[in-house]
Amino acid sequence: MRIPYRALVALLAVAVAGCAAVSKVDSGEALIRNRLVVQVANPWNQFERGLADDTPTWTHEGITVDALQFYVGVRDGALLAPTPSGRKGVEPLTFRASMQPADVMALLQSLLTRDGSSFSLDRLEATEFVGARGFRIEYSMVRKLDEVRLRGVAFGAIRNGELFLINYSAPRLAFFPKHAAEVEALARSAKVRS
């Protein structure tokens, strides 16, 4: 695997600029944004506000390697992720409660490719998530920044007009297979605290 040097430099710069706080998530029950409860099998490192996108992000191997992101209770009209500063004339990634699973997938796809990365859908299927009719996405991508080939899996559902989405991606050869089952179990355990 290529050492993601450029990714490291870029993300370090972001981390330093944003003073990203890292904390440990212990095994057991974890509460995210006071709404989403998941069962954690192994400890994770947590960036509570992500890297400049205000999205709780967990990692086992380091944030430039694998990332588990939580989009919790995104309301109608709210952004899935903020538009990067310095990018003018860019359509905002706005969630609408009327969206179908394929629309949410398109939104996620736009988020993941806005840096020029490539995205290809491997599988989209219905599944239950957070106690609602939801969907499961499997995808592959090549990150533009360092050309690392990634695999990803996302679980989502729109519940009472709010979007709940968990997205995990990691290099496809070693790290994705290593953690995929754990992420799958974590997603299956997800519940919304009312």
Binding site: R6, R114, G116
Partner: peptide, 12 residues
């Protein structure tokens, strides 16, 4: 002049 990375960064 490296490989074009994040587009915003590249633009800047």
């Amino acid at each position: 002049f490296g490989v074009v990375g994040l587009l915003g960064q590249m633009a800047a």
